[in-house]
């Protein structure tokens, strides 16, 4: 391929839960270094879309490509095979994910959370992993909390550890699933600040969020979803200031 391909590409992705179709024919492309924010009302399918990108949910139809390589399936000759969980694990190393409910490992300290995957998955030496994890915790402003257990940390601190934990695998792409929705309002800012810094450092990010000001300031692309389809997409200030679609207008009127 001579043409430069996007880092992440989604083609005609569909997903149903039972009879309820959550995603219909989604097409999406994210260039390396870009930040894409996905907004929309609850139940619009944005979280499911994000979870289909790393195959936490298996799409019913369509394909996801990371650097041109299909996710969750592989070609052998002209036959397409499903990947096993452990084959998928290799692909998932390249896509970090941050969850609404943090999902830190409660039996491990902040530092142990961050070094876990580098040691177990990448077989890094412990001193090296600790050095890198310490630098990451410093980056998210938690160097002094390295030896605290998750339950001893505030929600905002836990989410920042979760971000550091994902970064420790040096992913090509970071997925954020409503990272600030479970936080007390006064803790949202510290997490968004870390995400802003990441964006400035050039990390490719796909962020499902309700934080419109974050989307406006940080995103290169804004996608508005409703009822399983992408209703409108474009530059954030265009979509937010001059929504063309009635559903976008109605949603923005409610949240801004």
């Amino acid at each position: 391929m001579t043409e430069a391909q996007p880092l992440l590409k989604v083609e005609r992705l569909s997903k149903s839960f039972g009879t309820h179709q959550v995603l219909r024919n989604i097409d999406l492309a994210v260039e390396a270094g870009d930040v894409m924010c996905i907004v929309g009302p609850s139940g619009s399918g944005k979280s499911t879309l994000l979870r289909c990108l790393n195959y936490l949910e298996t799409p019913d139809a369509g394909a996801v490509f990371l650097s041109g390589e299909p996710i969750g399936v592989k070609w052998r000759g002209n036959t397409l095979y499903e990947m096993s969980f452990n084959e998928l694990a290799v692909q998932r190393q390249r896509m970090g994910m941050v969850f609404q409910s943090f999902n830190l490992f409660p039996h491990k300290t902040a530092l142990e959370n961050v070094i876990e995957a580098p040691i177990v998955v990448k077989r890094k030496k412990k001193p090296d992993a600790i050095a890198e994890a310490t630098a990451l915790l410093k980056k998210v402003g938690l160097a002094e909390r390295a030896h605290y257990y998750p339950k001893q940390l505030s929600g905002g601190q836990q989410q920042r550890v979760a971000i550091a934990r994902s970064l420790a695998m040096q992913p090509a792409l970071m997925l954020f699933d409503e990272p600030t929705s479970a936080l007390d309002p006064e803790l949202v800012g510290e997490v968004l600040a870390v995400m802003r810094q990441l964006a400035e450092d050039g990390m490719t990010m796909v962020v499902v969020t309700h934080e419109m000001s974050f989307a406006r300031d940080v995103a290169d692309h804004l996608v508005f979803m409703d009822e399983g389809v992408i209703v409108e997409a474009g530059k954030p200030k265009d979509v937010l200031s001059h929504p063309r679609h009635a559903r976008t207008k109605a949603f923005l009127a409610r949240v801004i």
């Binding site: 999902n103 490992f105 995957a117």
Partner: peptide, 20 residues
């Protein structure tokens, strides 16, 4: 969520079970 978090870090089934 524990399994999902471990899976997105690239851990295999056995690693998730044993470590997490």
């Amino acid at each position: 969520g524990q399994t999902e978090a471990a899976a997105t870090l690239g851990m295999t089934r056995a690693q998730i079970l044993r470590r997490i």
